[in-house]
Design a protein around this nucleic acid. Sequence first.
DNA 1: TTGGAAATTTTAACACCGTTAATTATATTG
DNA 2: CAATATAATTAACGGTGTTAAAATTTCCAA
Lengths: 180, 180
Amino acid sequence: MVNQLKQENIRGIFIQAAKNTLKSEGIKALSAREIGKATGFSYATIYNYFKDMNELCEVCMLEFLEECKEHVLSSAKSKSIKDMLKAYAMFFVQYPGLYALIFTDGNYVGRFYKQFSEKTEDMYKAVFDASEVETDNQKVPVLAFNAINGLLLAYINRNTPSDFAEFMQMLDAQIELLSI
Amino acid sequence: MVNQLKQENIRGIFIQAAKNTLKSEGIKALSAREIGKATGFSYATIYNYFKDMNELCEVCMLEFLEECKEHVLSSAKSKSIKDMLKAYAMFFVQYPGLYALIFTDGNYVGRFYKQFSEKTEDMYKAVFDASEVETDNQKVPVLAFNAINGLLLAYINRNTPSDFAEFMQMLDAQIELLSI
DNA sequence: TTGGAAATTTTAACACCGTTAATTATATTG
DNA sequence: CAATATAATTAACGGTGTTAAAATTTCCAA
């Protein structure tokens, strides 16, 4: 019982350390040894609490997705889909490493992708439900977010456009083009 | 003179070997040792012809981008933007590893991203020019491709949707939603 | 309280990776 | 042919994830 609690705590310590690294330095900086140093444990102790580094990453991903959802629902300037999609984009502009982790690094989707994909689509639909947009087409929320993801992909991973202001213009234009 | 030719040939051998691996097995399977084995050279010989593995990858990326452009311009069913965007998507569905390499693996964009981004946008515009679409908005080609890239990102990197037929439906719906 | 069993942590090791320096082999040229 | 320049190879370093064995700590009953 007490043991259980302690185990959960230590697991949480590893998760927190990994999240810190992922947020500040990105996945390239994450390693078993680095987490060991950050937590004061040996580098191998992690393997008593996670099957492998992938599992640790996947747990972080799920938590980040939750953070993202909360950020969108709480910080959007209005309930217009434009502002909500902007809030979504801003989350990843603020934490570009998380975008790479969640959307582009295939290594760490692995076993959990089903659970993860479902949770992502749930978020998309939740945001649309919270917005003032009405559409019969079930696909529209997913498509809209996909389009924004494509924009983020170019901006975050490839520095295109290279300027933030221009990125914002592209974001506006993209939402305009989607005509939702 | 003869030397120069020989050097170019060996460089080409490494590039070809790397391209084969990237196409068939993706970037995770690529390593200096693996290329050494595939070409019959030692693993360190590559460093006489490329600054590092990144440079080798970047050269491959540029060549793949060219292949992609040729594929779109030659194999699209018609000059409608719908068919051309479909041809674009099909190229990466056929070689999913290349999509990961070109668009999502930040490691290998590195130094060359400017040259590479420009070449990508050139391709987008070339495709639009070759199509029957007319638009005043310079941004439209880039935005349309970004949206398709977002779709590819979900399908290739995250298996969403998990079914090819459904992906094709999403593709149609995305182009529809863009109303171009 | 103490001794032994169970649980946990750490150390050492293995197989990879990219990369570099020194060595060996090959080719070129006087 | 010998000396030199060029190219390829081997050995090594520091990094990675991961596992097995050793060391340590925790726990509980006598």
